[in-house]
Design a protein around this nucleic acid. Structure first.
Lengths: 255, 255
DNA sequence: GATCATAGTCGTCTGCCTGACGATAAACAG
DNA sequence: CTGTTTATCGTCAGGCAGACGACTATGATC
């Protein structure tokens, strides 16, 4: 087919954000309430149009800051912000009833924050446990059809996008040190373990987990300090080390 | 920001294809020669515009068939075609000098074929060893800058896309049965091992490999036949089993 | 036909890692 | 002081991977 730049079909390109955090032992996602039709009043993932001279990742970072006040972690500074990566692109015709919209979804992993307090708009944004947004136990990934069940709590195809983002997070903390993105700059082994337990929805043996993470070179570096903020015996504080991949990986029970 | 459908910035949306196969012990990618400016005469990944009422995956499958004659494997029929999955989306402003193009790259893993024989156009399409297309040893993925070195052999940002696709294939055959997508419908353990060796660029121990793949339930199912097409002692023929994930994974040496 | 080269297949052994779980340490609450 | 909570160290058995040895069955070569 000839490549005719003057005759390309017009698309709208947006970014949608799956922003995950761990709050009170539960994996939570950031959702915003839609003020306009379609899906008015329904919850949706934050997102917006990509500007005409803006890179996709920059658009995602901008929307994240606009809607949550979160900042993305730069390549050098460690743990002053959130982790952002591209997730997947959703372009089914008819996913937006108004026009042809291709949405480049991004995944953000953030430490627990006081409260989103959106850009001016207050109670139209909140952290929602992913269990309350997704039918539990549904892998949802590439399956042919997952309809049937209670009605979709999220607008558009955002349940599908959220499910894909959650699955990416669940698998990625297996073989990378990304779980530290859910933690504050300094954290204990127990806090990191509770991140794994919340994301995977399982209980892990504290002793084996401690052996694994402290025995993996470059995963954790002790800061020297201790804390008792979790109660019990004082625990060592760590920062995330330079390692990005976990080899061998952290093993998720069953599966 | 208000969501104004009438004022969205116009984008062109394309699909680009990273089509990989294994030929003569080498991982090869499908490239086409560009007939028009820009990058006229340079090699590029196959691809084209998404039609206005077409899903992204359907566009990728259509371009694949148009440019190579390959067909995508349906969810039910096993190994009558190639594996296709979405890879990532590239939307840097200026990646196409003519206009703002967002390209949704897809990854295709195909068995070795007689010869592409493009849509009418003969020698403008070929299999090229990825070692000849990419600076060897460059991970290339999300690194800040990989310029410096010999000039880029591929048009646009296609070297980056190809590198990302190759890295995806390399990591995915670790923990999935996707390496069988490089094999004909019936294949031997040795042929499968040569796939791993070509994709990873390493030598694997035939005995340990045999133990691993035949010992993983659901990975391979014997067809009862044997073949001597590789020389030596006759080898059992297998088909791909129903398993899609390898747990525990196939371990890549060093890394 | 004997010999060689090539591939395939089955075992063995050792070391590492994980899961299961006992035991101890150091804080706080009553 | 006692019980509770959390952290941390140790031990032990089983599974799996890497390193190889050994044997089998074909085709090629002399």
């Amino acid at each position: 087919m000839p490549y005719d730049p003057s005759a390309f079909p017009p698309f709208a390109v947006t970014v949608d954000l799956v922003v995950l955090t761990v709050r009170r032992h539960a994996l939570c996602a950031l959702v915003v309430r839609r003020g306009e039709s379609p899906y008015q009043g329904r919850w949706a993932l934050p997102g917006g149009f990509v500007r005409i001279e803006e890179d996709l990742g920059a658009a995602a970072a901008r929307e994240l800051t606009e809607e949550t006040g979160l900042h993305v972690q730069g390549p050098d500074d460690r743990h002053t912000g959130a982790h952002l990566e591209q997730l997947a692109t959703y372009g089914d015709p008819g996913r937006d009833p108004r026009m042809r919209v291709v949405s480049v979804a991004h995944l953000v992993l953030a430490p627990d924050l006081p409260t989103p307090t959106a850009g001016g708009d207050a109670d139209s944004v909140r952290w929602a446990p992913v269990d309350s947004l997704l039918p539990p136990g549904q892998p949802c990934g590439d399956g042919p059809d997952r309809s049937g069940g209670q009605p979709d709590p999220l607008a558009f195809d955002h349940s599908r996008i959220l499910a894909d983002g959650v699955e990416r997070a669940r698998s990625k903390i297996e073989y990378s040190s990304l779980a530290t993105a859910f933690c504050p700059p300094e954290f204990t082994v127990g806090e990191l373990r509770r991140v794994y337990e919340a994301v995977w929805g399982v209980a892990l043996d504290p002793r084996n987990f401690h052996r694994k993470v402290t025995g993996t070179p470059g995963f954790l570096v002790p800061t020297g300090g201790t804390t008792t903020r979790q109660g019990g015996r004082p625990a060592q504080l760590f920062r995330a080390g330079g390692a990005t991949v976990l080899n061998p990986p952290m093993l998720r029970p069953d599966v």
